[in-house]
Amino acid sequence: MAENRDNHVSALRPGQVESRDNGERFGCSAGGCLVQLRRRIAEPGFVVTVDAEPRPGESRELITHEWAAANAAFDRFMHEY
């Protein structure tokens, strides 16, 4: 199952976003990095990550309980990376 998802993600063009029925999102950032917004499993909340080289003083992950904050971080990562 993960292999099919990975193949689908690799087919995304920069700026393209896919959403799942449960509200989770994944996309290809402007610079070609994978960005994901997913629900946390162990605790309530959301995690947003970007698969990019670390930048000094910047985090590639945000953990939050707020849906609006998760969506804002997803959009920011999509544009900044």
Rank of each mutant, 00 (worst) to 15 (best):
A68I: 00
A2V: 09
E66Y: 15
M1T: 05
Q16V: 02
E3V: 01
A42W: 14
N4A: 06
E61P: 06
I41P: 03
A11P: 05
S19E: 12
S59G: 07
M78R: 06
S29E: 12
A42Q: 13
I63D: 10
Y81S: 05
F46C: 03
F74I: 01
F74G: 06
A69W: 08
T49P: 02
W67Q: 13
E43N: 12
H8E: 14
T64Y: 11
A70V: 09
R76C: 03
R40K: 12
R38A: 11
R76E: 12
C28P: 10
F26C: 05
N71F: 02
Q36C: 03
H8I: 08
E58L: 08
R76K: 11
R76V: 04
T49W: 06
T49F: 09
P56W: 05
T64R: 09
N4Y: 09
F74H: 03
C33L: 04
E3P: 00
R20F: 11
P14G: 00
M78S: 03
N71V: 03
V9Q: 12
A52W: 08
C28V: 09
L34C: 06
D21K: 11
R60C: 04
A30S: 04
N71S: 08
V48Q: 08
P14M: 01
N22I: 00
S29K: 12
A11S: 15
Q36R: 12
R76W: 14
E18L: 10
N7G: 01
D51N: 09
R40S: 08
L62M: 02
L37P: 01
C28K: 13
A72C: 08
Q16P: 07
D51H: 09
L34R: 11
R60W: 08
F46D: 00
D51L: 06
R40N: 11
A72S: 04
W67P: 00
L62P: 01
P56D: 14
L34M: 11
A30I: 10
E61L: 15
A69D: 10
N22R: 02
A52E: 06
S10E: 10
